[in-house]
Design a protein around this nucleic acid. Structure first.
Length: 703
DNA sequence: CTGAAGGCTAC
DNA sequence: TCTCGTAGCCTTCAG
């Protein structure tokens, strides 16, 4: 994790030059009159970026304080929680702030300015926002006092020969790239502050005034309202509206245009919120979030022969797919995809080899990623067919092809494994359904059956019942209990999402409240078996509303079935049938694409064979003379005969081994040609729905 | 009615 | 090295 800095610097007003020459940083001596007070220094690794800088500026007037992770969103939060938050406590004591004080100047503070230094990425923007939120919430007057700044570090560095240039805006870099022949230029992206080298930190701190951007207030009320829009936990509907108005590519050049809080929220923070949704809410077509898709893509592409350690696998994914986030998070996603205990996955696309967690703790009992292994579950390729790999739209990360925007499985995986995601403005909850039933539903739909199946959520290995609750517009999952005798109840299944540990807590409470006498657990990590002992009189009451009393009921609903459509617009689905209908048209069009791809491929194969036959025939019959001929001469002979070229060359003919220039080989090729011809006819005559049905049949076999 | 908890990808 | 904290939304449940 890269640390984010709340950097405390006391300086006089800084004159910003209108023109910032970012070709080379200009060397300027640090003006000590900028600085006034003591610094606060932390002790961990990323802190060194700042400390390197302090080697130039001196530490007398600068203090740096490292933050860990995301700061608390204090808006609407109780004072007890806020005052108990270590991070907030430290920030307040470092700056010398007091709750409830209305600041007219920064004289009483230990620092006259606060500079936020965070990674130049989406989460970095979020952290800046959360810090702004703290000040606006408690000390809004401070934000009118030229108090808050951000420290800007480059996003990209380009180098050639002795020359180098830093880019601070992606648009500037893109513009340069489009206008320049980039060959010979070494291009380095700064992902996180950790990329910055110590001598570079020194350079940036030497020119500190060039790197500080002040946050300005245009209008105090507007500012506070906008910050409230972003961080008030109750204003999710306003945030939906805000995000629906999002327009991409509105990067503001902070060096040329005065940075305001308003523009920060509307042009920078909003990018985080959009990205937050993109990573948290799945695609309606493959049911995957980007990190999961990267995992799958890597498995498909690398074709590991054996199981691979989860921690090294995560490294491989980062490398291959330009995953720019933390390893721990990615490892968590791998583990999640391989889990197969009741309530986790209906089809675990990855196989768990080692302890990946159990229903006892809802998967939280998985072992560390360096101890556990995984591999592709073979059935995954029955869902995500290999022939489709060629027709997907692959994303591009700065010139490298990475995973596709979405896969197109043969059944809507989003319904198979469901999804939970929490974004900004929206969350997405999609229950799980039986892959077998979805497959049958699709087969019926393809065959235009009038009456189709009714789909009810389904969880692999679940022994209880799932029933529709008309009154509450939701499904109930019910555990399984048994009255053994007049004082004993035996429980053999817990409802979906009720993990054993959580259930024992509940029973402990019942014992404490004397609602039951005692209980005995005989559970394994797979089988539920709990005996509950009660009095005869209590038994009667319990059996009146057993599921409620025994806490054996959980719910699942279809109120938040949001997923991204094929254009990555957020789409709401009311029922699983909606999702299938949407999926159906897209999948069918992809069968069309697959068919076209296969026809083109077989056609090419056929032409190659045909031309080889013609070539061999020519050589044998001496129509083509190759003995003692220069290559150019052979090529012109082939030109005359109008043989096919591949990539502007005849290499696929001229590269044939000598021993294939025989009659026997020609006969063999003729057989192959006939085979290809038949194959082509067959595929041309196969309706795409038939192709689909064939895949579905294969899937059913492996289910 | 309010507050807390849980789920999950990220810091 | 491991454990723990934070965001974001929505439903459910406890107080």
């Amino acid at each position: 994790m890269t640390e984010n800095y709340l950097e405390l610097i006391d300086i006089e007003d800084i004159e910003f030059t209108d023109e910032y020459d970012n070709m080379v940083d200009i060397q300027v001596d640090i003006d000590e009159s900028f600085c006034l007070s003591n610094g606060i220094i932390s002790h961990n690794s990323a802190h060194s970026t700042c400390l390197s800088g302090f080697a130039v500026t001196g530490r007398k007037y600068h203090g740096a304080f490292p933050l860990k992770g995301k700061p608390l969103n204090v808006r609407g939060e109780g004072l007890t929680k806020i005052k108990g938050n270590d991070e907030i406590k430290n920030i307040i004591s470092a700056i010398g702030l007091e709750f409830g004080k209305k600041y007219k100047s920064t004289k009483d503070l230990r620092y006259g300015k606060v500079v936020v230094m965070s990674d130049q990425d989406h989460d970095g923007s979020h952290i800046k926002g959360l810090l702004i939120n703290i000040f606006d919430n408690f000390w809004p007057e401070l934000l009118n006092l030229d108090f808050l700044y951000e420290f800007i570090t480059p996003i990209v560095k380009i180098e050639k020969g002795g020359r180098h240039r830093y880019f601070y805006q992606l648009n500037d870099y893109k513009k340069w790239k489009s206008e320049t022949n980039i060959s010979g230029w070494f291009i380095k992206y700064y992902k996180g502050l950790g990329t910055i080298q110590p001598d570079e930190s020194k350079l940036f701190f030497k020119n500190i005034s060039k790197h500080l951007i002040k946050f300005n207030t245009k209008n105090r009320a507007d500012r506070s309202n906008l910050i409230d829009l972003a961080f008030n936990k109750k204003r999710t509907d306003d945030r939906k509206e805000w995000l629906l108005k999002y327009k991409p590519n509105l990067e503001i050049d902070k060096f040329k245009i005065k940075q305001t809080y308003e523009s920060f929220i509307n042009h920078e923070l909003i990018e985080y919120s959009m990205a937050d949704n993109l990573r948290s809410i799945p695609s309606s077509i493959d049911g995957l979030k980007p990190s999961q898709r990267k995992i799958l893509y890597t498995l498909f592409k690398k074709n590991y022969k054996d199981q691979i350690k989860v921690s090294s696998f995560a490294g491989g994914i980062s490398e291959l797919t330009s995953y720019h986030h933390g390893q721990v998070s990615l490892e968590g996603s791998i583990v999640g995809m391989a889990q197969n205990y009741v309530g986790s996955n209906n089809i675990n696309l990855l196989e768990p080899k080692g302890q990946f967690g159990t229903r006892l703790k809802g998967g939280k009992d998985s072992s560390a990623s360096r101890y556990i292994f995984t591999k592709l579950n073979p059935i995954t390729r029955n869902l995500f067919i290999k022939d489709d790999d060629k027709i997907l739209h692959y994303l591009n990360d700065d010139g490298y092809n990475i995973e596709p925007d979405f896969y197109v499985p043969i059944i809507p995986n989003i319904l198979v494994n469901g999804s939970d995601g929490i974004g900004t403005g929206w969350r997405s909850d999609i229950p799980k359904y039986s892959p077998m039933e979805i497959t049958d539903y699709l087969i019926n739909k393809i065959n235009h059956k009038r009456k189709n199946l009714t789909l009810i959520p389904s969880y692999k290995g679940f022994k209880g019942e799932i029933i529709w609750d008309e009154e509450n517009n939701r499904f109930s999952s019910l555990g399984v209990f048994n009255k053994v005798n007049s004082t004993t109840i035996n429980i053999t299944e817990l409802p979906i999402g009720m993990w054993n540990d959580k259930y024992y807590d509940y029973l402990d409470k019942l014992v404490e409240e004397k609602k039951i006498k005692d209980y005995v657990k005989n559970c394994t990590d797979i089988e539920v078996n709990v005996s509950i002992f009660v009095s005869r009189t209590d038994m009667k009451n319990i059996l009146e509303e057993p599921y409620k009393f025994l806490n054996l009921e959980t719910y699942m609903h279809m109120k938040n079935m949001y997923a991204f459509d094929e254009n990555y617009k957020l789409k709401k689905f009311e029922t699983p049938y909606d999702l299938i209908d949407y999926f159906y048209d897209i999948r069918l069009s992809y069968y069309g694409k697959r068919k076209k791809y296969l026809i083109d491929k077989i056609n090419l194969d056929k032409s190659i064979i045909y031309n080889r036959i013609k070539f061999i025939n020519g050589v044998i019959s001496n129509k083509i003379k190759i003995h003692r001929m220069a290559k150019d001469n052979i090529v012109s002979q082939l030109d005359v005969l109008k043989l096919m070229k591949i990539d502007e060359s005849y290499d696929y003919l001229l590269g044939m081994p000598i021993y294939s220039l025989t009659k026997e080989k020609m006969i063999e090729l003729k057989e192959q040609y006939e085979k290809k011809k038949a194959e082509l006819e067959e595929i041309k005559n196969t309706e795409i729905t038939k192709m689909w049905l064939k895949d579905l049949k294969e899937l059913k076999k492996s289910l």
